[in-house]
């Protein structure tokens, strides 16, 4: 589903964020991506959603070679990838419902269909009673869950999460992780960037380890 072949990312200043990274995530696989701050986790996720383009190597997502994908096709790629962000990136002048509905509105769904799907997604993350609230009135954990609902509302085959448990206490963090597990169980390919090593280990999934832009580990749990 996601294939990295000798992928490097250099920034104009000469800084190398990723160096010759190789891995392959199969369809329906759940994987963690870990490493210290600045190891290149976010950059790797951003390359998949084409928020940035890689400097060299090949990235194939869902059979599409991203190097050859013209800019005007990027929106359609992003509709197939649900993404959550550490800083949530919600619209603070819209209600929770409107935030979650955004990907559906953009894709041109009908009103009733939007209503149905948004409520289903909010129900899934346990925020159905907050649909009329504004994000500013929610806690950090709740905002993260709004972000997750927005990422999955379009039923994308791929889900990318950047530090979804960033500032959450361990109990909440585990709840969030369990949400991703549930999405994975219905067939979504999930890639979660996180530095919460203890939590990752306890989850028991494949883990990619980045260090200063190099992929230094690709471990599978012992089963």
């Amino acid at each position: 589903m996601i294939l990295f072949n000798k992928v490097s990312k250099r920034y104009p200043g000469g800084y190398k964020a990723l160096i010759q990274v190789n891995f392959h995530l199969k369809r329906g696989e759940m994987t963690f991506l870990t490493g210290h701050s600045g190891a290149g986790k976010s950059t790797l996720l951003r390359l998949i959603a084409l928020i940035e383009r890689n400097s060299s190597g090949q990235i194939v997502v869902g059979g599409q070679n991203l190097s050859r994908l013209p800019n005007h096709h990027i929106p359609y790629l992003r509709r197939k990838i649900g993404m959550t962000f550490q800083e949530h990136r919600l619209l603070f002048d819209r209600t929770v419902f409107d935030n979650v509905a955004l990907p559906l509105v953009i894709a041109g769904f009908r009103h009733q269909e939007i209503r149905r799907r948004v409520r289903a997604a909010l129900d899934k993350v346990g925020l159905l009673n907050k649909e009329k609230s504004y994000p500013i009135t929610l806690s950090g954990g709740q905002q993260q869950r709004v972000g997750i609902a927005r990422a999955v509302v379009n039923k994308p085959p791929i889900l990318l999460a950047d530090e979804p448990t960033g500032n959450l206490d361990p109990g909440l963090a585990r709840e969030i992780m369990n949400l991703f597990v549930q999405f994975n169980q219905v067939g979504v390919t999930v890639l979660i960037a996180s530095h919460a090593l203890g939590l990752i280990k306890s989850m028991g999934y494949r883990t990619l380890i980045l260090q200063q832009g190099n992929l230094i580990g690709d471990t599978y749990p012992r089963r």
Partner: peptide, 20 residues
């Protein structure tokens, strides 16, 4: 909610043109 696992889940193709 059910998830489709293929990439070609373009809603425009599924809905009737008049509705779209």
């Amino acid at each position: 909610m059910k998830h489709s696992t293929h990439l070609q889940n373009n809603p425009r193709r599924k809905a009737k043109p008049s509705q779209q």
